[in-house]
Write a protein that binds this DNA or RNA. Structure first.
Lengths: 193, 193
DNA sequence: GCTTCTAGCTAAAGCGATTAGCTACAGCGT
DNA sequence: ACGCTGTAGCTAATCGCTTTAGCTAGAAGC
């Protein structure tokens, strides 16, 4: 038996890729092992089980998403930054539906969990977008949650084929960006709540 | 063996309730059978399998959500209607996270599928909300998708405990309603995209 | 070249979904 | 009241996937 030369990172990367291809629900230890040219139990030398694998895929996904969004925002402000961030986020989720799905419902075990770090990085990228609007300090958290809900909701609904009816989806997304831009500008004037 | 007197509706209702309690992922045929005082294989006399059960729970959830949102909107218009719909929707998802989770990723098999009917009813409730704003006809679809993304995103993120940081979540949701109201009003003026 | 560490293997246990086939309760007609 | 019939629920068994136990041999250091 020739050594396959695996390590945790390689297993997680392959798992994420496979999840993107077949859907997270169809990612089994067996199929992943086969993909890696190895027998199923061998995977347990690198990840401690399906749960651990899922958490690591989630951390990878959030980290990549943070890179994508953070990079897209560079050099822009205001509406441009918002549009770039939203488009980058959606593109990431649509290209990597499996690994993004792994992030839903996982909770960091502590502040040092790679999951928590990656999550903070992604949030930071959205905070940067909000700096382009005159949001009152106490409202920044609310705006951040709104932005995240909007992006998460749209991307996951589309990834799950939740939009059955007719109108063009890209167009809807551009409309949504305009909506968010104008809404944020209006909210910056008067105190909300 | 005394008859338990089950039927598909009772099995689905119990499944939905159990999913709300323990989470959709932990809803097993075994635990559901135990809850109903019956052996596992007996369930297959009422639903054709886990897939079928999931679809039926999803249809039930969408139908109930449509009732809740539709009822809440009655007699209101504009901001009041929007707030009522959003609050009703969020309350439903938070009270019934398991059954709502069942709706994610299921696709109606055809236009007569109870799933499709329930889905249309829920959408209709949101369309009613939008009638209170002067949205140009071609933009109604976009606004509907936006509204759905916003509600779905916020509710599922909260249900999954996705909001780790500090600010008060109810307050964030009220802020979000105000944001959506103002955004919809602004969008009604100028043509978007 | 020898020792040591460990990636990967085979074997096996265990759990959940599902199917096959039996049994007996309930509702019906007589 | 009595038997007939349809079917809800049962036991037994299969199958697939996860996970553990224990072995083996390739690679790295001396």
């Amino acid at each position: 038996m020739p050594r396959a030369g695996l390590d945790p990172a390689a297993v997680v990367a392959a798992g994420a890729a496979l999840a993107d291809e077949v859907g997270l629900a169809h990612l089994t230890m067996g199929s992943l092992a086969e993909r890696l040219g190895v027998r199923t139990p061998s995977l347990y030398k690198h990840v401690s089980g399906q749960d651990d694998l899922n958490r690591r895929i989630a951390a990878l996904a959030l980290s990549e998403a943070a890179d994508a969004v953070g990079g897209a925002v560079q050099g822009y402000a205001g509406r441009e930054a918002l549009a770039a961030a939203a488009r980058a986020f959606r593109a990431f989720v649509l290209e990597h539906p499996g690994r993004y799905a792994a992030t839903i419902g996982v909770e960091p075990s502590g502040p040092d969990d790679p999951l928590a770090t990656a999550s903070r990085r992604l949030l930071a990228a959205f905070v940067a977008v909000l700096r382009g609007y005159e949001i009152a300090e106490p409202d920044v958290d609310h705006a951040l949650r709104m932005l995240r809900s909007l992006c998460h909701g749209f991307a996951t609904l589309q990834a799950a084929d939740g939009f059955q009816w007719s109108a063009d989806i890209d167009q809807s997304f551009e409309w949504l960006i305009t909506f968010a831009d104008r809404g944020l500008r209006v909210m910056s004037g008067a105190g909300a709540v």
